[in-house]
Design a protein around this nucleic acid. Sequence first.
DNA 1: CCATTTCCATAACGGACGGTATATAATGTC
DNA 2: GACATTATATACCGTCCGTTATGGAAATGG
Lengths: 203, 203
Amino acid sequence: MEMDLCAPTKGRPREFDIDDALAAALRVFWSKGYEGASLTELTEAMGITRPSLYAAFGNKESLFRKALDLYEREKLAYMRAALDAPTAKGVAERLLRGALASQCSECEPKGCLGVISSVACGAEAEAIREEVIKRRQSSHKALVERFEQAKRDGDLAADADIDGLTGYIFAVMQGMAVQAGAGAKREDLERVLETSLMMWPGR
Amino acid sequence: MEMDLCAPTKGRPREFDIDDALAAALRVFWSKGYEGASLTELTEAMGITRPSLYAAFGNKESLFRKALDLYEREKLAYMRAALDAPTAKGVAERLLRGALASQCSECEPKGCLGVISSVACGAEAEAIREEVIKRRQSSHKALVERFEQAKRDGDLAADADIDGLTGYIFAVMQGMAVQAGAGAKREDLERVLETSLMMWPGR
DNA sequence: CCATTTCCATAACGGACGGTATATAATGTC
DNA sequence: GACATTATATACCGTCCGTTATGGAAATGG
């Protein structure tokens, strides 16, 4: 199903670019949240009508999931890349700098879609919320494993609390996201980042 | 106005306790957010009907503001108390421990109403969101002033970045709130707290 | 050229939302 | 006891929500 490769080329071709439309939808979800983004706002931003949206993406929830895929693929790439840093502190630094760049880009919504979508919501969005939380857990797990490697490498102390460190670095990133979404200036978050980095043990 | 003292005692007395009702409303807002909390959920939790709610609290927005007042008065008291700690690190520790207790109470919703209400939302809740952000700024300012005092006292280095430290400690608390709202266990957040505290400079 | 397929545009659907009008019940005042 | 006042109960309002039915336009395959 959905074999979009080798387009069918039968019938009238769609008049909009599906990737552009999805990117536009992502921006709306990113700034308003799942529930806060109405179909009217979405279709206006995407430049298409409601039936076109439903034909191309299924429904609102499935559109959000596709937007979330795009977000993780493009905007959260820094997370995977950060794990390649040579030391634990290097990983932390790349994570924080990547979060800052992603949350404070000039031409995109402030904050983090994952944070926005994982906080409290109405009943209808509960399924979305749980999915976002589940996806975050896999990132969490990857960072735990990277820090375990760091402990073996010796750049984390043998008695370091790895779960604590992982939760901590996520907390700083999430806190930055909250503040970015609340209108904090980029330089404010830069100082938060530097402060946190300064405290990180070792090098 | 609103001289509720020396109750008027004229007309039919209301059959519910207004403070209990407000506390119940707070719990709903706290777990669902402003938009996620419907009038149906609110009235059911408060044990009153819609007209009673409107007669006693005005409308949904004004009910939320009163609930927010209650929240800040009761659940955020630890913030004011924390400023009395003798050292900057003591302030940080009290803030983090207070946040943990408030966000992970067994008998109340997880997370932080301020965080929940300050992230992205629909258009109708924008005014609420801005008010919550404004209230947080006054807390921020109070902590900045406390840290400036700490610098004069000598328990913060003369070249310490006070705005950075303040934003940082708020970020950790907000990150803990995000994780608490996402279902993190209390012991997880306790380790985040201890990790952050361990890194704090000085004593 | 026709049939088919797919898309676009309009407009409507049922339902939930926040908010109220109306009528009735319960109190204090005179 | 009659009146003024306030709270409750029921039922309803208009609006917006996500979703879809309908009708026609545009492109391809035969």
